[in-house]
Amino acid sequence: MDETDGAARARVRLEPWGEDDLWLLRLHNSPEMTAHLGGPETEEQLDARHRRYVALESGRMYRVVRTDGGEAVGAIGFWERPWAGGTVWETGWAVSPGFQGRGFAVRAARAVAEEARAAGRHRWLHAFPRTDHAASNAVCRRAGFTLLGPVELEYPKGHPITSNDWRLDLDE
């Protein structure tokens, strides 16, 4: 799937996560990249995450690839999450150092919303960035999500955080 962001010339393509993509998780496993996610993971945790991404049956993980050059600039996906008495799609992303601040996350979020829409099943796609993560909250706003307000979550499990609940209506 290709997606452009208004006047931006760069385009992204979502490529399904594959066996050879563990390197991207390792790249994103720095203290700077994981500051809002509970910190870096061990190699064993990264390998387990990679296995979950490869085996994901409900939803899908992707590499975000620039169409003008073919390099991977990040990762994004969508998966099921129980929420507010039902089940919704949730999304999350990471843009690699060197590519941040150029709109790749916004374009990828719009593209993954189309993938979630095409998958059917759920009306809502939610994102839950920490309230203090200005960049991810800006991505949600620019990608067309509606802010519902702060919520208390655990991420990683056992670590309470305050996140914003952003929601996108996939039926629109």
Rank of each mutant, 00 (worst) to 15 (best):
A48M: 09
R49E: 14
H50K: 09
H50L: 08
R51E: 12
R52Y: 06
R52D: 13
Y53D: 10
Y53L: 15
Y53W: 02
V54Q: 09
V54C: 15
V54F: 05
V54P: 13
A55G: 11
L56A: 13
E57Q: 14
S58G: 02
G59Q: 09
G59I: 06
G59D: 09
R60H: 10
M61S: 02
M61P: 03
M61R: 03
Y62D: 08
Y62P: 05
Y62F: 15
Y62L: 06
R63K: 15
V64L: 11
R66Y: 00
T67Q: 13
T67W: 00
D68I: 03
D68Q: 11
G69Y: 07
G69I: 13
G70R: 03
G70L: 12
G70M: 06
E71S: 08
V73C: 06
V73F: 04
V73T: 03
A75D: 08
A75M: 08
I76W: 00
G77F: 02
G77S: 05
F78T: 04
F78P: 05
E80A: 14
P82C: 01
W83I: 05
A84D: 15
G85N: 07
G86Y: 02
E90S: 11
E90L: 02
G92V: 03
W93P: 02
A94W: 00
V95C: 15
S96K: 03
S96P: 02
S96W: 00
P97S: 12
P97N: 13
G98I: 07
F99T: 11
F99H: 15
Q100K: 02
Q100P: 07
R102W: 01
R102I: 07
R102L: 13
G103N: 09
F104V: 01
A105M: 07
A105D: 08
V106A: 10
V106M: 05
R107V: 01
A108T: 03
